[in-house]
Computed example of a mutant assay.
Amino acid sequence: MRVNSVHLDTKHRFSKPAVPEVRLIEGVGVEGDAHSGATVQHLHLVRKDASAPNLRQVHLIQSELFEELAGAGYAVQPGDLGENITTTGVDLFALPTGTTLHLGDTAVLTLTGLRNPCRQIDKFRTGLLKQVLHKAPGGTVVRRVGVMSVVTTGGTVRPGDPLRLVIPAEPHKPLGLV
């Protein structure tokens, strides 16, 4: 398990360019990123309640998702879907709420929930939304555009850094929307 790539953007754009490293700030997020802050920064959520805590400080996606999407005919690269950190070797969607991800030497993230796919995904690649948002047999809605987290301990994260998981004690709470 490792960090594949890191991304940030100072503006609220859909995709984020790759950078050599990101600095995570405890309780805030990625230094210099438009979504960092102690209170919610997502433009839609700010309109609802600008004073709400920011449970979406750092967005992560597993690189294996891009491989699956390529198999369905969609070329998606790290950073294209707006994530700050792309991982390799861990099924982020299967982790429970409260899982901690230890990245590099000191950084620690705590998973808060799932990113909700929005129609901007189809603006990026027509038809892609149906690949990352669908119903499983039995009617359960499946969302697969990454997980959200907060910075528990700050630090610098770079591509190639190791990633270690600590799963919380049971009972586990599945990741929900944040």
Rank of each mutant, 00 (worst) to 15 (best):
Q120G: 14
Q62E: 14
S36G: 09
T106K: 05
H44R: 15
V22Y: 04
P17Y: 02
R47E: 10
G104F: 01
R144T: 12
S15I: 11
D33N: 01
E67F: 04
P117G: 06
I61T: 12
T152S: 09
G98K: 12
S51R: 06
E64P: 02
G37H: 14
T86A: 08
L60D: 04
R13H: 11
G176C: 11
V58A: 00
C118E: 08
S15W: 11
G37T: 14
G127M: 01
H42Q: 15
D9P: 03
V22S: 08
T10S: 12
R2I: 14
L103P: 10
L109C: 06
K135S: 08
V132D: 01
Q41C: 15
T100E: 10
G82V: 05
L109G: 06
V132S: 02
R119D: 06
S5A: 14
H35G: 13
R158A: 15
M1K: 07
D161H: 03
A38D: 14
R115W: 02
K123Q: 14
P53Q: 02
Q62D: 12
S51H: 04
G155W: 00
E67H: 11
T97L: 10
Q62Y: 01
P159I: 04
T88V: 08
G104E: 05
G127Y: 01
F14Q: 15
L111F: 05
A34S: 15
T10R: 11
H44C: 09
L69Q: 05
Y74H: 13
L165G: 13
